[in-house]
């Protein structure tokens, strides 16, 4: 009996600790999210206090909207490239930082620093790097004689999206590295010793020990970077605002300009709802697939 009340008391205390987070989460996140489901069924313009209920018209219009299709395509390209490259760079970086490089403490910090910068800072910095006339990148190309390679990196639709991919990868590879690094340090050293004794080479060891045992961090890294890039907004908004002529328009930038600039809040919110399910389904699929190959 006494034990029961104790545990009930404990429950109350635990609930007390959880309450602030849950209250904040519901009012500022869950509430608006549910609210947006409602607004997506209206023609609210974001300004007037009145609106009409239009049923699924916004969603029907979305299906015929060529720009939205382009935005989905760009979002997918952006996500696939960033996630793959970011993780392909993150793993070797982590391996290097786990080895006996003397300057690894300094390097670790250096690689991680971009991740704590605001995307606005990163965006503005890179616009100077990419600037066609006096930008660092074109100046370097000019100096080494590769004038033919000079481009208007953010102003040419052929390159703009990939230029932003490079920015995102630069910013977050260090972040992936830290997570891989944490995982690497959980792999017991005796496995490698045993492998050494059995005569396995470095590559063999990576393939058969390191990579399989990195599975948990691969899952978390891929899911995190996918969600992060699917909903990336600021880094694109400060560099190209989705331009030139929709070349870097993603779901988020289109959603923003539709709702706020073009005063179609209802339609913009419908894009948000579609995006919500998009992100939800993709991350769910990733978790289910990647979990399966984790070693338990």
């Amino acid at each position: 009996m006494l034990k029961m009340t104790m545990s009930r008391k404990e429950h109350f205390i635990l609930a007390g600790f959880l309450a602030p987070a849950i209250i904040v989460y519901t009012t500022f996140l869950l509430g608006p999210v549910l609210g947006s489901f409602f607004y997506s069924l209206t023609n609210w313009n974001g300004l007037y206090q009145t609106m009409d209920f239009v049923g699924l018209r916004n969603f029907v219009n979305l299906m015929e909207d060529g720009v939205f299709a382009k935005a989905i395509r760009n979002t997918m390209i952006f996500t696939v490239f960033v996630v793959l490259i970011q993780n392909a760079i993150g793993v070797p970086l982590a391996l290097a930082m786990d080895s006996r490089i003397r300057s690894k403490q300094v390097l670790k910090t250096l690689f991680f620093v971009p991740a704590i910068l605001s995307p606005l800072v990163v965006g503005y910095t890179w616009t100077y790097i990419y600037e066609p006339q006096n930008g660092v990148l074109n100046t370097i190309l000019r100096t080494v004689g590769l004038t033919g390679w000079e481009q208007s990196w953010l102003g040419d639709p052929q390159f703009a999206l990939y230029s932003i991919v490079v920015m995102a990868v630069w910013q977050f590879s260090g972040y992936s590295m830290v997570i891989y690094l944490a995982n690497l340090q959980t792999i017991p050293g005796d496995l490698y010793e045993a492998a050494d004794i059995d005569g396995a080479g470095k590559w063999q060891q990576f393939k058969s020990i390191t990579f399989p045992l990195l599975a948990p961090s691969i899952t978390i890294n891929i899911v995190l970077s996918s969600i992060g890039t699917l909903k990336a907004f600021d880094i694109i908004y400060v560099t190209t605002k989705g331009g030139p002529y929709y070349a870097t328009e993603t779901m988020t930038t289109l959603l923003f300009s539709t709702a706020f600039t073009k005063s179609s809040f209802g339609y913009g919110t419908a894009m948000g709802v579609v995006m919500f399910f998009f992100v939800f389904i993709i991350s769910l699929a990733q978790i289910l697939l990647l979990r399966r190959r984790e070693v338990h």
Partner: peptide, 22 residues
Amino acid sequence: EFGGAGTAELMTSAQGVYLKAI
């Protein structure tokens, strides 16, 4: 009356003409 929609599209599509996309 719909200045926001008009100007936003003007700015985006204007780029399209310079790029010969439209």
